[in-house]
Simulated assay, not measured.
Amino acid sequence: MAISVAVPIGETTAQRLIQKLAPKVRALNIGPGTDPDAEMGPLVTKQHLEKVRAYIDAGVAEGAELVVDGRDFKRQGYEDGYFIGGTLFDRVTTDMKIYREEIFGPVLAVARANSYDDAADMINQHEFGNGTAIFTRDGDAAREFAHQIQVGMVGINVPIPVPMAFHSFGGWKASLFGDHHMHGPEGIRFYTKLKTITTRWPTGIRAGAEFVMPTMG
Score class of each variant (00 low, 15 high):
Asp179Glu: 15
Phe83Tyr: 11
Ile103His: 03
Val92Met: 10
Arg100Ser: 12
Val110Gln: 05
Ser4Tyr: 02
Thr203Arg: 09
Ile30Gly: 08
Glu65Met: 12
Gly184Arg: 00
Arg100Lys: 15
Met153Glu: 10
His183Glu: 11
Asp69Val: 08
Ile160Met: 09
Gly31Glu: 12
Leu21Pro: 02
Ile18Leu: 13
Glu65Arg: 15
Asn114Ile: 01
Ile98Cys: 02
Val67Asp: 03
Val67Cys: 07
Ile30Leu: 13
Asp90Gln: 03
Ala119His: 02
His147Glu: 09
Gln19Ala: 13
Ser4Val: 11
Pro8Ala: 02
Arg100Thr: 13
Glu102Pro: 06
Phe169Tyr: 13
Gly86Leu: 06
Phe83Asn: 04
Asp117Ser: 13
Gly184His: 00
Ile3Gly: 14
Val162Trp: 05
Pro42Met: 08
Phe83Pro: 00
Thr192Glu: 12
Val60Asp: 02
Ala2Phe: 03
Leu17Gly: 04
Gly184Pro: 00
Tyr99Phe: 15
Val212Met: 11
Ala27Glu: 10
Leu21His: 05
Asp37Tyr: 07
Gly178Met: 01
Glu50Gln: 14
Arg206Asp: 14
Ala146Trp: 02
Ser168Gly: 12
Leu43Glu: 03
Thr215Val: 15
Ile56Asp: 06
Lys173Cys: 09
Gly155Asn: 00
Asp69Glu: 11
Ala174Glu: 15
Phe104Met: 05
Thr45His: 11
Ala142Trp: 13
Phe128Asp: 01
Phe211Ala: 06
Gln15Cys: 07
Ala133Glu: 04
Asp69Trp: 10
Pro8Asn: 00
Pro106Gly: 06
Lys173His: 10
Pro161Val: 10
Gly208Ala: 05
Ala165Glu: 09
Arg200Tyr: 03
Gln47Asn: 15
Ser168Ile: 00
Val212Pro: 02
Met96Asn: 11
Ile197Arg: 09
Leu21Asn: 07
Ala64Arg: 01
Ala133His: 06
Ile3Pro: 01
Gly31Val: 10
Asp95Leu: 05
Asp72Thr: 12
Ala2Trp: 08
Ile160Tyr: 05
Val52Ser: 09
Pro8Gln: 03
Gly155Lys: 01
Ala58Val: 03
Glu65Asn: 14
Met164Asn: 04
Tyr99Pro: 04
Asn29Trp: 12
Gln125Phe: 10
Gly77Ala: 15
Ala54Trp: 09
Ala109Ser: 15
His147Val: 00
Met40Asp: 10
Ala120Val: 11
Ala14Pro: 00
Lys74Asn: 11
Glu39Cys: 07
Ala111Cys: 15
Arg26Asn: 02
Pro42Asn: 12
Thr13Ile: 10
Ala174His: 13
Val5Pro: 00
Thr196Lys: 09
Asp121Val: 07
Ala58Asn: 03
Gln47Pro: 12
Gly155Ser: 00
Pro8Lys: 05
Ile103Thr: 08
Gly170Tyr: 01
Gly171Met: 12
Asp90Gly: 02
Tyr99Asn: 11
Asp138Phe: 10
Lys20Gln: 07
Val154Tyr: 04
Met216Val: 12
Met216Ser: 07
Val68Asn: 04
Arg200Gln: 13
Val110Ala: 02
Gly204Thr: 10
Val5Gln: 01
Phe135Thr: 13
Phe166Arg: 07
Lys20His: 04
Ala38Asp: 11
Val7Asn: 01
Arg137Glu: 14
Asp118Phe: 06
Val92Cys: 09
Pro8Arg: 00
Met40Leu: 15
Phe190Ala: 13
Asp118Met: 10
